[in-house]
Design a protein around this nucleic acid. Sequence first.
DNA 1: GTTTAGGCTTCG
Length: 767
Amino acid sequence: MPVHTVKCASDLDTIAPSHVQRISISNLKLTSDYVHTSVKGEVVQKGPVVSCRQRDHLLKAVIQDKETQSSDPSQHTSINVIFFGTLAKDFSQTVSQGDMVLLSGFTISKSPTEQTDRLHPGLLEMSRNDACVYVYSTNVFVPSGPDVVSSESRYTYVPLNELKPSRNPVNIYGVVTFFKQPFPTKGTDYCSTLKITDQSNVKVSCTIFSERLEDHPKIFQIGDIIRLHRVKAQMFNGSMTLLTTLGWSTVTFDGKIDSPIDPRTSSRTFNFGAADKRIVEGLRQWAASQLLNKEPTVPLSSVQPKMFFDLTCQLLAKASMDTRCMLLKVWDGTQCAHPLLNVAVAPDALEGKYPQSTDQENMIANVLVYDNHVEGASKLKPGMFLRLYNLHAVPQRAPEQSADSASSLCFHLHGGTSYGKGLCVLPSESPELQPLKSSHLSRLLQSAVADEDEVNDATLVEAWYTPPEALGERVNEDCFTVRTCGHTLQQVSLAHVKRSATPMVFHVCAKVKSYQPQNLYQCLKLFCPQCTALVEVPNDEVIAQVFQDAMRCSQPCSEQWAITSTVDAISMHVSCDMIVKDTHTQLLFLQGVTLEEVCVISDAHSNVVPVRSDNGRMRLLDFSAPFLFCKDKRYFGCKRCSQSTFVEPDVSEVEIWDEHNVAKALGVQLMQYALLMKFELVDETGTLEALIWEDAEKFFHVTAADTSACQDSQDKVQTTMDKLHPPGSSMAEHPWLDLCLSAYTVEENGTTQVCYQITNTEAKGNF
DNA sequence: GTTTAGGCTTCG
């Protein structure tokens, strides 16, 4: 075997025979003879094995010396390598992109691609009999085909080379090599046409029909990864084709190796587990080695006359020219090297604004969108981020320009769908927009510094980062909640929320997967606004015991401020001052009562304060019991913040007694009732635990105090929860919720924790 | 009920 695997990275430094000398890639010279020489580097590109007439098989790779740091661009640390014959096949099977290799037994020749790839001027050829590869694999996972059957997944994925024409639906994964945006058919549906491939290198066409545009795969560029469930394979014109069947579904992913695995789908219920993650990672690695996803869009600065290209841009303004043509004014933050045509439109015909200053010269492209693309373009709103596929850069003159003047570039999106012509909206958090956003921002800042015209440019920067509300919103009539905040935020995924910094407010659309506490009475808490203590509401057993303990001392209490009357073992005290003001029936102090008795008495009286005797002096009960009973409500005092000794109640200036002035008169810190619940939220990108706390009353349309006593309020909370999380139902039946989510950090015991709270959100429904 | 499309520029 000419390819040897080593177990440890340092083995590469010692494994070669002692007569072999190592040289760094940058020191390789075209003129030298490297008989007993080795080079070490990381495999940064790996091509497929290809057949060629003269040499049987060959494989091209690029290795890079990452140990030699050099800021000198003339120091080439990456070099092309070609492996021949069985070495090519062995290398293909054993080595992955990212692995470290040590090569010996090579010859060097002039690289034919030096001008285009700017790599080392030399090319290493691994064809001699003594050619030898040592490899240390750095990959943590084993790249595998999509034929992964896992116990955690209900789905089996068929490699594309194993597809057989059949009526039975299959599931597949693939890398997109060609796609068209969905277009209307002569039938009832829209159609997406794509071509995909996988590690088997077989290319398969896919035809996707759906009358709902949002159900079509969200493919933005070649190299994206697609999963299809329940599609059937059939032969057409001698090639394998996949066709959607009843119950089909799709999920797509960005194909870049390091981008987050963020499933794109309109499906409300879909499976995505660790096995899927591995398949996507495997396909990303493989696609990178095949250079499948190296097809970036062209910035305005690189556009040449007459070329066809894809443009990633932001829509500034649009205008309808006629029924078959729409004008889009767009930019991408770069400046075109050629003059750009400005199509003049009456200001009132234009939707959206765009900067007119000379700073933006040749930064705003005019795109004429024709025929079948007008439908899609008419749904666009200024501020949206777009990708326009297969634009044609047409040199032309404005009507007022004379025939001998230089022509300007206008971009045409011609009618039809050939070559993938079309347009789509990119989500504003799309990783594909990052380079464009940063280039745009830096450009605007530069011009701001140069002209001191900051106001305008700052506004533009803000506009750039604030896409319109309409963008990417899930239109959902069935949503069970409504946001009441005034934020104009774009809806984001839970994965996006988890990736973002705090503090921050987000709008999300998610379902409740589970919630705590399951027993709703447990979500009622007591909260002290003074010391922020949060405690459980004591149960009746605990409270009854406090009353029992208080009755142990039956000695009557005598206080100068009170008049006492006693029936059996129960003493009733009222304030003398209140008798004078004739308000004494509003506040009774009861001694020697059980919990049951105080409940019966307080039913007929507004404020009843249970007291006990402590060697003839009146005392409040332990704060584990309510200090006040009022009709059906019970009020608690904070153990920490209330005065421990009982003083004469200050009854002056109170006409109508409620829990607040009773607490104040007694030196008690009133505890507030509060609702606290934890929702496990879920969307297509993952789960997130969020509290419902500060805005819980608003959310459930109840007051927490009512919930402590009133059955109607308790039922309201229960009914709401049963709608958000129908008992015994599948996730598919759980409603989507529009939520405003606050992310913040909490420091506890020296550790910082990120917390999420549902705020500014109300459950819908007729209460 | 299961059609439609089945890549392949370039009029404006």
